[in-house]
Design a protein around this nucleic acid. Sequence first.
DNA 1: ACCGACGCTAAGCGCTTGCTCACCCGGCAG
DNA 2: CTGCCGGGTGAGCAAGCGCTTAGCGTCGGT
Lengths: 241, 241
Amino acid sequence: MSAEAATGEAWEDITPDAARRLVVAAVQAFAERGYHATTTRDIAGRAGMSPAALYIHYKTKEELLYQISRVGHQRSLDMLREARDGGGSAADRLAAAVRAFVRWHAEHHTTGRVVQYELGALAPDHYGEIVALRRQSEDAIRAIVAEGVAAGEFDVPEVPGTTLAVLSLCIDVARWFNPAGRRTPDEVGALYADLVLRMVRAEGGPVADRDRPEAGDGGLQAVQDLPDPPETADRRRSDQQ
Amino acid sequence: MSAEAATGEAWEDITPDAARRLVVAAVQAFAERGYHATTTRDIAGRAGMSPAALYIHYKTKEELLYQISRVGHQRSLDMLREARDGGGSAADRLAAAVRAFVRWHAEHHTTGRVVQYELGALAPDHYGEIVALRRQSEDAIRAIVAEGVAAGEFDVPEVPGTTLAVLSLCIDVARWFNPAGRRTPDEVGALYADLVLRMVRAEGGPVADRDRPEAGDGGLQAVQDLPDPPETADRRRSDQQ
DNA sequence: ACCGACGCTAAGCGCTTGCTCACCCGGCAG
DNA sequence: CTGCCGGGTGAGCAAGCGCTTAGCGTCGGT
């Protein structure tokens, strides 16, 4: 699977073809430069079209962001609910939720960056809609945590606060993950599932042991995975990965 | 302490007065709308000056962001190093680091938001400088974690990855913290210190117990603390808190 | 052969942006 | 009183912005 495919594969059901190319181009541009720093000319250029062609498929630049945000949030919510309603102990389900959510945000870190960090640029009504989805995502995680606590499986200092921390930890993966770094999305997902089970003091559950990566690979240098450096030069299509 | 003071107090040593007012205004504007969506007219307006006055004190809009970013990162680094070099066990020092870092990012969440999420808008050379500071911050935390592991005090799946997760968790506080929410900066700091000690399996240390907030305040609804809604209307100075 | 629909482009409109420039004003040394 | 100087303003420039409009080529259906 190429890196380009990783950006594009989530949008395969968008038609016509030109509309899908525009979404993919917008995701890349928004992730690199941010919504406000991205021009409609840039998006259209990446999609191989003239600036005016954008407005045949989308009414405004903001509608593009809205589509991206809506689909991404819905996808996140579906993942979390699937984990919540899956089988196994609360620890199994919490680990599954974290693993899936984190893996997706690492794999699709460009999309994730737009989804998680650009929603402030949405129009007020669209923003409200997205916030509702986010609340439901939080509800899904909190349900798992609360069930684990009720079953005596977890021990947490405070359910809402712990839920918030878990969600926050997972979301932030989209910010720092670098595909050129040393960790694969699977590895980050497994590591984070382990760390989250520790946060809720799930006593060395089977999932934690099964998925834990090898401990103490001592020589690894811990230079932080860094987001792409800013680009003042207008390289545009030179390395569209 | 007023909310305005919370934004302003970190910049008291900037002179002359007009330059400081501009920084405070820029922090608020960048935090609310993002760097690219903020106009120099907006900044100058909030500071009670004409647009041209900005350029008497700062060469460009980017230089304002650079000042904010530099001071904020330096302050973060100082806090983390102070905790690292403080006394006590590794658990004590890790908890102190997290508590201070998180409390600052909650208290000064506007500044924190700019510092942590707008660095992509920096010019390449300024960006490089800031990245160096961030690496040193990561080094400070990793040192504490590594020492705890070496002393047999911590048990972590992987030192670099755990360090990254701890830092990421703390940074993201600036994104979601809402001063109108139910948690004070102190409470969030204590909660996070507890959660981080769990991540490294520091066995129920004194710090964790001393600072842990009351557990299981059941009735609390877990609606996520949300960032300010977007504003299309140009309210500007109406509720500058 | 004709035609309307569709996808697209070249050109550009109205506006906002970051930033500049000529000028102004109050305080203070000589 | 005079001259200077740091801090400030009003007006505005060049460039770039989101978006529109008039028109063009290429289709499938009749």
